[in-house]
Design a protein around this nucleic acid. Sequence first.
DNA 1: CCTTATGGTTAACAGTGTTAACCTAATGTA
DNA 2: TACATTAGGTTAACACTGTTAACCATAAGG
Lengths: 205, 205
Amino acid sequence: MEMEQEKGLKRLILDTARQLLTTTGYAQLSMRNIANKIGYSATSIYLYFESKDDLVHELIDEGVDLLHARLTEADSTATSPDGRLLAMCREYVSFGMERPEYYEIMYVLHPEYIKRYPAEKYRKARRILEVIASAIEDGIDSGVFEESDSMLAANIAWTQLHGVVTLLTSERVDKRIDPNILIDSACSHFVDSLRRTTSTTPQNN
Amino acid sequence: MEMEQEKGLKRLILDTARQLLTTTGYAQLSMRNIANKIGYSATSIYLYFESKDDLVHELIDEGVDLLHARLTEADSTATSPDGRLLAMCREYVSFGMERPEYYEIMYVLHPEYIKRYPAEKYRKARRILEVIASAIEDGIDSGVFEESDSMLAANIAWTQLHGVVTLLTSERVDKRIDPNILIDSACSHFVDSLRRTTSTTPQNN
DNA sequence: CCTTATGGTTAACAGTGTTAACCTAATGTA
DNA sequence: TACATTAGGTTAACACTGTTAACCATAAGG
């Protein structure tokens, strides 16, 4: 009972923070806003979290779990290696588009946050890339993909997907471009680029 | 003489802001910091700029000009269509890596900024994509690339390059991945994906 | 019964963008 | 010359931000 109460407020803070994040966005996620919503003073949050960074890191952790679950789920639905990869790429983008607030704190927030990110959680976040890498590895093993370094390829996929998500959610892409077509094409282009032999360096002069 | 003085301070503010941006980064770019550096009060900036947004928008404009110049320059050096495109892709990433502060205010800063971005400057920013699109169009015309929509392809290139820049500069990419290899591979993969027929949709079950 | 720790509070600091009110010096005009 | 106006700049203040220090009541332990 005591233990419930002890961690009760911490849980309450975290829940309120998540709710505030998803409804009003990160810009409105302040210590005082959180505290006001639950009838506590802002400084009481510091009894359970070292700093705002600390609090956000726990939210990031939730987002990582969410994305990881969605990727593995998508991974299991498709069967063919390229189908698996394509499904995962689409799922990654879907997550970014559907949960922009989570995506923002996970992958967009300023580098300062990342530098202070605890090592153990950093390892957990890397599992996401490993899911993609294993799908690529699978494609290599079955001869569908021609690629030497699956981890490198996974990172290329990541940068492509990350670019799609961030430019779309920040509404920097021209309105005349259909978002769904852009997403589909970007995913297809990448998967295609793995299918045949790459690195045909063109002439420079 | 009067006109020089009239716009003299505005120019001084802008120069100081740019310097502050490149040396200390966007986080330290505050009205008071700018004012202190030139011996004026913070509120005097509002005599020449409507808001901080307004000021930043002018800095963004400078960044857009810079990037545009570098892309067209890179465009002119190479001759073959795929070489042109590859050179431009590399140049885009180089700009992002060498001027991260400019890149941040141009493409990373929160959507709120973009919504308030004046339409005329928005059009100017779009020229950057058009440079890429024209290179792709050139490749299509000469039969090197197989692609129907050059503007769509340019946007795919953009998302890929943007992803590379942001994930690298924010130090979210694993240390074991060589940045240069990632950059080169990402650029090559994209250009390659244009070379042959795309959109070979894989089986999903 | 006294001490100590738990769980919270308020006040305050240094910083942010921005607005309102003011003040001074130059200019334009009757 | 005398007065009004305006350009260019200031200070004070508001409503925020994350965070720290000091305080205070209540409960638990020896």
